[in-house]
Design a binder for these strands. Structure first.
Lengths: 211, 211
DNA sequence: CCTTTCTTCACATCATCATGTGAAAATTTT
DNA sequence: AAAATTTTCACATGATGATGTGAAGAAAGG
């Protein structure tokens, strides 16, 4: 039984949507709201598996709601259901971790199918949205296939702390080991990444998303 | 009438695929090849609207082929049709500008439907692929509205050199100033970026694209 | 012209980092 | 059980970085 929470400001559309969802035997609508002002509390209370989000809503809109949701409940799925298909909105939604993106002109049966697909591990999107998503990438510039530097767990941990801006001393206290141990791990990182300073290691780690 | 070019090394699958495509009245298969070695010439000659690309092929594989294709004929659509669904391959294909990505276990009629969808402006993807595509984004981190730290020209230059991994001494010789001057600029950068080490400055510079 | 900001450089001192050697204990793999 | 790898720690030395003070010429803006 999948619990669904709906955020949509248009009362008619919201009502129709909730009714549609209720026709499915394995869906339960555990709440309907007209904006995201209380989304944190509402999700906490209703414990949904999926949140459907309109974007254009008063006070706190769907993108802000999505942000709050994913910050506090990253495991709860979120699907945007909106009239907006401009690059900006789509891009932001994807960056904020939306799990699906449908346009409101999608046929009711397709909406139901999309939700099922989402629960099956898919990421339902209107074809036009899918195209926009793909087109956002190449703009970011191609990146060579990511190399694996075979860092050990501790080496990766040390590197992560350095990336966060900590000094050896701070890393040592953070990891509860001696500073000499930190040195050893750093040496390992250096030889594997072929760098010779913290800043080079940090730069490489960030750019190649090693951490 | 849509012209389609096929790159696929398995002779049986290639044959079946070509036959499948020929069953559609508005598709024409204008060529079939078992690797991408001559893709530039072949596309130039055949003038396809769409290229179907397997990934695992000898000599020059589908990703390399995609690269060559999009470099030379950005308007020609490309759809990957492969058994690979790992993040690496998907990510690279998307970055190189693939317009669609299907797995080979897709049913024949779905393949046909996907191609039509692609010509209609969509971006057909297997649901699992769509999910991977969405998941690649948040890792890139949301770009907050870029702050302006009002670095001076020299400060920016020094920072750029530090990001490139140079030491103070090397920066000094590179910029042909004394090491003390470099120190001064670094101090300026630190107070403006509110950091206290090279590595923090480098991390911030890369992440917020200051350089 | 005067003021402000930027750029340049010096000196000093303490903290931190880079690099090498050596080695024991814990863990994983074979 | 033996071998390989990882994790832990120590010591030492030279290099580099962090921070502060002080100051003078150049460039930009009012």
């Amino acid at each position: 039984m999948k619990r669904i929470l709906v955020f949509e400001d248009n009362p008619n559309y919201r009502k129709n949507l909730a009714e549609l969802l209720r026709t499915e035997p394995d869906f339960t609508v555990v709440g309907e709201f007209s904006d995201c002002r209380q989304i944190k509390n509402q999700v906490e209370f209703a414990r949904p598996d999926l949140v459907l989000l309109d974007i254009d809503m008063p006070h706190v809109d769907g993108l802000q709601g999505l942000f709050i949701l994913k910050q506090n409940f990253p495991a709860v799925r979120a699907m945007m259901l909106t009239i907006f298909d401009d690059n900006e909105k789509v891009f932001n939604a994807i960056c904020l971790g939306a799990d699906g993106y449908l346009l409101k002109d999608t046929a009711p049966e397709k909406i139901i199918a999309a939700i099922h697909e989402l629960f099956d591990g898919g990421a339902p999107m209107t074809p036009a949205i899918a195209r926009k998503v793909l087109q956002i990438f190449p703009r970011a510039g191609f990146r060579a296939s990511r190399e694996d530097y075979f860092l050990t767990e501790k080496e990766r941990e040390v590197l992560a702390h350095l990336v966060a801006g900590l000094s050896y001393k701070m890393v040592a206290s953070e990891m509860e080991v001696s500073i000499n141990t930190v040195r050893t791990h750093v040496s390992g990182v250096y030889s594997k990444l072929k760098v010779h300073s913290v800043s080079e290691a940090v730069a490489k780690a960030i750019r190649e998303q090693i951490v």
